[in-house]
């Protein structure tokens, strides 16, 4: 009986199996953690820190208002209009030809009319005075909104033993 020799095994290049393992883990991580396609208009700022807090699942029903200190100690509110990609400033009130308009209130009222689950998210830096946040809360109240959410930075509880 003729014995067949074993063929020579020739490795063709670098073994990429560990690379694929790591890359697959990274992809799964990014797919789970990253929020893709959700643009809320949230601007980076130094938020107040809290231990308590909730997550909002239906971010599609929200409007994020970024409150900054504007000129003349007035609030400067930035938001992301629908179907746009860049934040715009929205005035609390403005004079157009002698007539006073309330753009923020009008936007909130329109959103409330079309979406009963509409809610507002307020983002403000921690050193802001209440006098700059109060007019926004008043606009929300005037628009008959009763679900207002304050964004805070999540911190872990450290209680002394």
């Amino acid at each position: 009986m003729r014995r067949l020799p074993m063929p020579n095994i020739r490795e063709g290049g670098v073994n990429v199996t560990p690379l694929i393992d790591i890359v697959m883990c990274l992809i799964i991580f990014f797919m789970l953690v990253a929020k893709i396609g959700i643009t809320t208009g949230a601007e980076p700022m130094d938020l107040p820190e809290t231990i308590l807090g909730q997550k909002i699942e239906d971010l599609g029903n929200t409007l994020t208002l970024n409150v900054h200190r504007g000129q003349g100690n007035q609030p400067r509110v930035m938001y992301l209009p629908k179907n746009e990609r860049i934040n715009r400033e929205i005035k609390l009130s403005q004079n157009e030809g002698g007539k006073i308009h309330h753009p923020l209130l009008e936007v909130l009222k329109a959103a409330r009319r079309t979406n009963p689950r509409f809610k507002v998210i307020i983002r403000a830096p921690k050193d802001l005075g209440y006098e700059l946040i109060e007019p926004i809360l008043q606009a929300c109240a005037a628009a008959d909104l009763n679900n207002i959410n304050f964004t805070t930075a999540q911190v872990m509880e450290l209680r002394p033993e």
């Binding site: 953690v33 990253a34 929020k35 893709i36 807090g53 304050f150």
Partner: peptide, 16 residues
């Protein structure tokens, strides 16, 4: 490149 991370933020829910 596309993903944004907001895991370190949460919300205090208020009523008026």
């Amino acid at each position: 490149l596309v993903g944004s991370f907001g895991a370190s933020e949460h919300f205090l829910v208020s009523n008026l």
